[in-house]
């Protein structure tokens, strides 16, 4: 298939599927009652999903090396977590996390 056309098919189909996923349950529960157990479980979506998103970004590249403590990203992420927990501030988290990463990289060299 021709390159540009193939890419546009991907863009439109992925975009449409993303939108339908985002709309799915908002539309479904617009006129229905939500079961109480489901409503209770959904409280934990932010904590569980965001952590599942973050961990692989911190532990790459390679997981084994990161777990052994040689990746500068791990201590930087811990610093950022502590700062975010106490300050609730995105900017302070970004500043502390990037500074910790650069420091850890400089020390590792």
């Amino acid at each position: 298939m021709e390159g540009a056309l193939k890419l546009w098919i991907v863009i439109v189909v992925v975009g449409a599927l993303n939108y339908l996923s985002r709309l799915s349950f908002i539309a479904f529960f617009a006129s229905r009652e939500m079961p109480p157990l489901l409503a209770r479980a959904l409280k934990f979506v932010p904590a569980a999903m965001l952590t599942a998103l973050v961990v692989p970004m911190v532990l790459v590249p390679p997981t084994a090396e990161a777990l052994a403590g040689t990746s500068p990203r791990v201590p930087a992420a811990i610093v950022a977590t502590v700062v975010a927990f106490f300050t609730h501030s995105t900017l302070k988290t970004l500043g502390a996390g990037m500074a910790a990463l650069w420091l850890a990289q400089a020390l590792a060299r």
Binding site: R73, A77, A80
Partner: peptide, 17 residues
Amino acid sequence: SLDFAVPLCFIALVAPL
């Protein structure tokens, strides 16, 4: 290592929880 700002943003959202 500017790409590290991506997980940092998510950490800022999740850690207060």
